[in-house]
């Protein structure tokens, strides 16, 4: 796409931040969905599943920023700032959203790192989806006590998270970047 997208310029930093804010605001509107899902799943003891169902949505800012601005670190910054939007908007998690942002950011970024920042296509995105799933799941093993569940429930949670991340951070991200490539060609 554009030639100017490969270094940390002021413009790219603003662009990453704006992408993060747009995503943050769009997800802000899905807050009710999280609360609703948690409420429905609570009587079955499956409330944590709500996290896993929505994980892909929360982790979109990272891969989107990574695909648009092809600089090492852009996925991390995008995802981290996406979580900061919640702090600015006064979300229920307050500043502890920064921690989730750090973890998710590392997850998103690792995929691009492992593919050497050369594969801004299905390969890079799939790697990012897998690392995001593993890193965030590892964090929930500790933070939310997933390590106290049996293997059956763990697999359910893990697979749900993988599918969710693949749909949102994978498929939708690739579709968006295809739309962007097409529009820049038609200009």
């Amino acid at each position: 796409m554009n030639n100017n997208r490969d270094h940390w310029s002021l413009r790219n930093i603003i662009l990453i931040t704006l992408i993060a804010i747009f995503c943050g605001v769009i997800f802000w509107g899905t807050g009710f969905l999280y609360t609703g899902l948690t409420l429905i799943l609570t009587p079955f003891g499956l409330a944590p599943l709500a996290n896993d169902i929505l994980m892909g949505v929360w982790c979109m800012a990272g891969p989107l920023a990574g695909m648009v601005i092809k600089v090492p670190g852009s996925a991390f910054l995008g995802e981290f700032l996406g979580s900061a939007v919640e702090v600015f908007l006064g979300g229920q998690w307050g500043a502890s959203a920064f921690i989730s942002g750090l973890v998710q950011g590392i997850g998103s970024e690792l995929g691009f790192t492992l593919t050497g920042y050369k594969h801004y296509n299905w390969l890079g995105i799939t790697a990012s989806v897998i690392t995001t799933t593993i890193v965030t799941f590892g964090w929930d093993m500790i933070r939310n006590g997933y390590n106290h569940y049996d293997l059956g429930l763990l697999s359910l949670l893990f697979i749900t998270r993988l599918v969710s991340t693949f749909i949102f951070s994978g498929i939708i991200t690739v579709l968006v970047s295809k739309l962007l490539t097409r529009s820049s060609r038609e200009e």
Partner: peptide, 13 residues
């Protein structure tokens, strides 16, 4: 409350 019930139902602690 969600995580409390979940750990009660499925957790080993």
């Amino acid at each position: 409350v969600g995580i409390f019930l979940s750990q009660m139902f499925y957790g080993n602690g």
